[in-house]
Structures are given as structure tokens and as C-alpha cells.
Amino acid sequence: MNIQIFGSTKSFDTKKAERFFKERNIKVQVINIKEKPMSKGELTSVVNALGDLDKIIDPKAKDKNALALIKYSPDETKFEKLLDSQQLLKLPIVRNKQRATVGVDEKTWAAWIEEK
């Protein structure tokens, strides 16, 4: 397993995801997106795994202006705007090779472990 957790050090859900894997003795790579934002390739991989760009946008994000800008942007420009405004991402984003989840999704994570 190659688990990557994109999140924030202040995010309770990010800590919960990290704890979930550590309790099961699975090594994880935790990336603080405030220090090292997701690359275009990483974000593309997550969007492809989820099948929808809107699934990774946090409707409760603090920056309401940026949220509105992305919400009402044409689909062809949403991705680039989200790449520039990663504070709008719903956290944590957990990747396992070509698969990904957004938010706390222990059921899916457990299924990944079972497949191992």
C-alpha cells in the first residue's frame, strides 16, 4: 500500500485519517497542503479517481469569495482556479495508488486494507 494523506496540521479529520492507518500499522505519507500544495498531476489523479471535480470542493471553506468564484466558473476553468486556491479543498484527501477519497471514509480505507 502506498497511502498519501493530503491535509492540514490543524484539521481534525486529517489527524483522524492519519490515526486510522497508524493504528493498523500502515505507513503513510502526510503532506501538509499549506506548506506543499498539490501538483497539477496529483490533483488531476484525485479528480480522475473521484470522477467529479465538485466532490473535492469544500462548501464550508472560509474563503467565501474564492468559493463563489469557483462555483460559478465555467467547467473548463474550474480546475485551474482550484489548483490556485487549494484552501478550498475538502480535507483530508487520501490516495492509494490510483484511488482516492475525500473526507473521513473509514469504510473505503478498511476495504483497501482488506485487499492488501
Score class of each variant (00 low, 15 high):
N2S: 14
Q4E: 11
I5H: 00
F6G: 01
G7V: 01
G7F: 09
G7E: 05
T9H: 10
K10T: 15
K10L: 10
S11C: 15
F12M: 00
F12H: 01
F12W: 06
D13N: 13
D13Q: 12
K16W: 01
K16Y: 02
K16A: 08
A17P: 00
E18D: 12
R19S: 10
F21D: 00
F21L: 03
E23F: 06
R24W: 02
I26N: 01
V28T: 15
I31L: 06
N32M: 11
I33W: 07
K34F: 15
E35W: 07
E35T: 14
E35R: 11
K36N: 14
P37N: 12
M38S: 04
S39W: 08
K40N: 12
L43E: 01
L43R: 10
T44I: 09
S45E: 12
S45Y: 06
V46G: 04
V47K: 05
N48I: 08
L50M: 10
L50P: 00
G51C: 09
G51H: 07
L53K: 14
L53F: 05
K55A: 10
K55I: 06
K55T: 08
I56V: 08
I57H: 00
D58G: 03
K60P: 01
K60A: 06
K60L: 11
K62M: 05
K62V: 12
D63K: 08
D63M: 07
N65C: 00
N65M: 13
N65P: 02
L67T: 13
A68P: 00
I70F: 03
I70M: 06
Y72D: 02
Y72Q: 00
Y72T: 11
Y72E: 05
Y72G: 07
Y72H: 11
S73E: 12
S73Y: 06
D75P: 05
D75H: 11
E76Q: 07
E76P: 00
E76V: 05
E76M: 10
K78I: 03
F79C: 09
L82I: 09
D84Q: 15
D84G: 11
S85C: 10
Q86R: 08
L89E: 03
L89S: 03
L89T: 02
L89M: 02
L91N: 02
P92S: 13
I93C: 04
R95K: 14
R95Y: 01
N96H: 13
N96Y: 11
K97N: 14
K97T: 05
K97R: 07
Q98Y: 04
A100C: 07
G103M: 12
V104S: 10
V104K: 09
V104M: 11
E106H: 09
K107L: 13
T108M: 02
T108K: 03
W109G: 01
A110M: 05
A110W: 02
A111H: 15
W112L: 08
W112V: 14
E115K: 14
K116G: 15
